[in-house]
Computed example of a mutant assay.
Amino acid sequence: MTEPITQPAALSRFDIRVLPKVSLHDHLDGGLRPATIVELAAAAGHTLPSTDPVALGEWFRESANSGSLVRYLETFDHTIAVMQTSEGLTRVAREFVEDLVEDGVVYAEIRWAPEQHLRAGLSLDEAVEAVQAGLEAGVAGAAENGQLIQVGQLITAMRHGDRGLEIAELAVRHRDRGAVGFDIAGAEDGFPPSRFTDAFTYLAEQMFPVTVHAGEAAGVESIVDALVHGRALRLGHGVRIAEDIEVDFEDEDAPGAEEDTAVGMVTLGEVAAWVRDRGIPLELCPSSNLQTGAVESFGPDLESHPFDLLYQTGFLVTVNTDNRLMSGVSLTDEFELLVQTFDYDLDDVLELTMNAANAAFLPLEERAVLAEYITEGFNRVRG
């Protein structure tokens, strides 16, 4: 039970940055520093669109703004290319944590697909160990500076590959050495979770938690597949669950209707009701959703994004960045956008943060400690 904040503080960007935050959906290969990409590419002999870090960062953002998930995913060719050695993976993971600490993140689950990082001869286990070394170095460095952060790996299998069970076994092997969960990612449409039924069955037998990318490039049927065959405890994105919600707005000219108000009657479909009523967390990534076209049926901008509809309707929504390099955002930026767009206050930011803390793949006792730490941090801002 969190202590209520009765006098919300003014929400400036600085205030949001120093608030303790939780990041559940953040791709390792989508959060590199442009300068690091340039250095690692030179060492690997990989050709980049630009060797100027500023121009390269702009190229990533412009390429990701195509409105196509397929085009968005193509930008990863360059980041993955420089993450093929133990040294490269360790450096990227360490800097990833450093950037999260700078953004005020105190708990993070970092997802990545080891099968994409074997070109230079690493084994799957060596790749996972290299990333873990970097994460631990980042955590230790933060502690030396008096800053606390806890991180875990979400070991991911690629949807278009055929290594689901192998990657699931890899994740379970490392469950006591940094791995906290399993995911499938990549091209969603045409590659349903049912392709990996054996992997998901194995994970269930091992009592190992699963989040599944669903409801981004494909609709409600993909979410159903993630819940039924993937046995997902969380939905990666899941934003298109809103397609199973009907909102009928009151006729403004009807007797009794208030001027300048829009009152909607909300009806949940069977799938939406299941997800909401059972508190299945949604890992929403607002900026990324706009870039990939995941929410184009709702409108062209953040104002039309169904984030607030889902929040106000009682879904367990969380705020995430997806890929900080491609989207050009931090978690602070995402919260700031939501605050400005939907007029959220500090209580809303706390509730969204607590949603993420409670959805973390941590033991109950550790989630309680995290929740208490977050509440204390918010109360310090309140003064």
Rank of each mutant, 00 (worst) to 15 (best):
L325M: 13
V105H: 14
N65D: 15
P34E: 01
L40T: 06
L302V: 00
S86W: 05
G293D: 06
S297Q: 04
Q340I: 02
L19K: 00
D103P: 06
Y373P: 11
T211R: 07
A113Q: 12
P363Y: 06
L331G: 03
D347G: 13
D251M: 02
E351G: 06
D308H: 15
S288I: 09
P193M: 00
D52A: 13
L165D: 07
G30D: 09
A142W: 00
G230Q: 09
E372A: 13
A371M: 12
A199M: 15
T267K: 12
A42W: 15
E221V: 12
A140I: 02
Q291T: 07
G293C: 07
M207W: 07
L148H: 11
L48A: 10
R33F: 06
V381I: 07
G161V: 01
T318R: 08
E372R: 08
E243G: 00
I16T: 10
F200Y: 15
N65S: 13
R177W: 04
T2S: 13
L352W: 04
G269W: 00
F315G: 00
V369R: 15
G383M: 10
V212S: 08
E102P: 05
S23D: 01
F208N: 11
N320F: 05
T47E: 11
H25N: 02
L338F: 05
A143Q: 07
A93Q: 14
R177K: 03
